[in-house]
């Protein structure tokens, strides 16, 4: 299956892309998608937190719905899903 990943804010620089199409085996979950994207220590650190959990400092949305409270890294993926990734910011 093919998943579209949209990078926003400084993730565009980090992943050197605005958008990527990633091929994954059927039944893959978000953890596998992110694992395949994070092919450097810097990328891995930006996405994964302690003990390989999802970093609390990023927001990931699947088809417009944030995954934070609905599956997280175990969120199931389907062919054609669109994943958006951007950092959390909090200054004012």
């Amino acid at each position: 299956m093919h998943i579209k990943v949209k990078f926003l804010a400084y993730f565009r620089d980090l992943f050197q892309s605005r958008e990527k199409i990633i091929a994954l085996p059927e039944g893959a979950r978000l953890r596998q998608l992110l694992g395949s994207l994070c092919d450097s220590a810097e990328r891995h650190k930006a996405v994964f937190g302690k003990e390989e959990s999802l970093s609390p400092h990023i927001v990931i949305m699947k088809n417009g719905v944030p995954v934070q409270n609905s599956g997280g890294l175990d969120a199931a993926l389907e062919n054609g899903d669109v994943i958006a990734i951007f950092p959390f910011i909090g200054g004012g």
Partner: peptide, 17 residues
């Protein structure tokens, strides 16, 4: 993003959880 002067609009649907 002021550095690249980009404006992105992201749809945020309700999170059922």
């Amino acid at each position: 993003d002021g550095l690249h002067l980009t404006f992105d609009l992201v749809n945020v649907d309700k999170n059922p959880a």
